[in-house]
Design a protein around this nucleic acid. Structure first.
Lengths: 129, 129, 129, 129
DNA sequence: GTGGTCTAGACCACC
DNA sequence: GTGGTCTAGACCACA
């Protein structure tokens, strides 16, 4: 995994973990990789992963069994999805619209690129049924 | 001007200045406010504005005449616009599409909100003729 | 390290750092002294060193790992050397030639002094094998 | 005349004036352009030219007749030439040698370029007899 | 520990 | 008046 330079690594990992949960790769109540394991995989300091897990725990996305590990909270999917959706619709989309108007990019152009994008990324982003 | 807490002030000012240039409020080759002046207006330390101007100068958005002040680079508008557009189309839009697919939000929903947004923000983003 | 009075300290430090890299004292991908450490060694304010590192980072001579420190960019040597060579051959040398013609100083004189210089400065400028 | 950004304009003008004197374009005891005139030609603030003239006057390169103008000092040529030569041999040349060793550029290469330079710039740099 | 940002204040050269 | 540099000191997020 590559990390961008303008966002804290532990937040980028939080996004990564959230997405795995959202896509069902890490199902509810399943044990997720230990701090050290994930840290090794991602080539980061264990403290950093710890921070991610603590954050997600405080958001009720993960829970923790002492001495055993971290687990996906049952309501995590709904929880994450709702939060993500909220932010997308109220924060990100308006910002996108602002930029479109500023640059003179219209909906048709966006639409075109959307179709393009979809055909390039068939269905890897949905939850396997 | 209010500043967000999660982005460096000098970068927010850079965005602010860039947008003024992009909208034609500060035309090419015109002198822009002095470091101290803008600092006073924005209620920040002159060093902070200085940092913004240095950044924009290194990006060929501003240039400088010794002892006189900072000026808008002639190619700044095109430069800024091209860079902004490039980033939007190749970085931001795909990220938006990813999120849409992830959250199951379709184009119609986006379209609806886009119209809503446009009617709420008439034409404050274009250059006055 | 002594600093000249007619050039900004942070630029002199940049030259100093570049030369250490060029000579292989600070190899590619190696961690360089922290901002505070170098500042202490050179007896300057940390902000000043910070400025140097930022400059060199913007020139792709250094890169940075969050919370860890600054590192020599792998391509730094080639990068620095190429830029330095280019400037020397296209900017500095012609200026020297101009001066020579203006003052009536010929190549033999220069050659003589060059040999003199070399014997006074054995090989302190090459990379130790 | 174009000005570099890394040297004070009044110093660049001083170099320009010195060279004209050195080449005999402005002979000893001749009146040189007024401050305003030269400022107009060079597109700079008269204060800046004034500063140049004051500097050169303090170096006995120019002298001044109140209400009439500035004149080339009789000993100016010798004076300028000596100072220029001194600086070239003791400051500039050693620096050039340092760079050559650092970059691995030998005398033959320099010699080659010197001949090239000379043939490209026939004799425009000598004093007309 | 690391970098990153900001402030306050100073001094300077320059136009 | 302008920018440019430097210091001292503070606070913060991050690894």
């Amino acid at each position: 995994m590559e990390f961008k330079d303008n966002e804290a690594i532990y937040l980028q990992i939080a996004g990564y973990v959230s997405e795995l949960i959202l896509r069902g790769k890490w199902p509810p109540d399943s044990k997720i990789p230990s701090v050290r394991e994930l840290a090794g995989d991602l080539q980061v300091n264990p403290n950093t992963v710890m921070r991610t897990y603590e954050l997600l725990q405080s958001q009720d996305v993960l829970y923790n069994k002492r001495g055993i590990g971290f687990f996906v909270a049952p309501a995590a999917v709904a929880q994450v999805q709702a939060a993500r959706r909220e932010r997308f619709l109220t924060q990100e989309l308006p910002e996108v619209f602002r930029t479109m108007l500023l640059l003179g990019i219209g909906l048709p152009e966006v639409q075109r690129r959307y179709e393009e994008f979809k055909s390039a990324h068939p269905q890897p982003l949905t939850v396997p049924s």
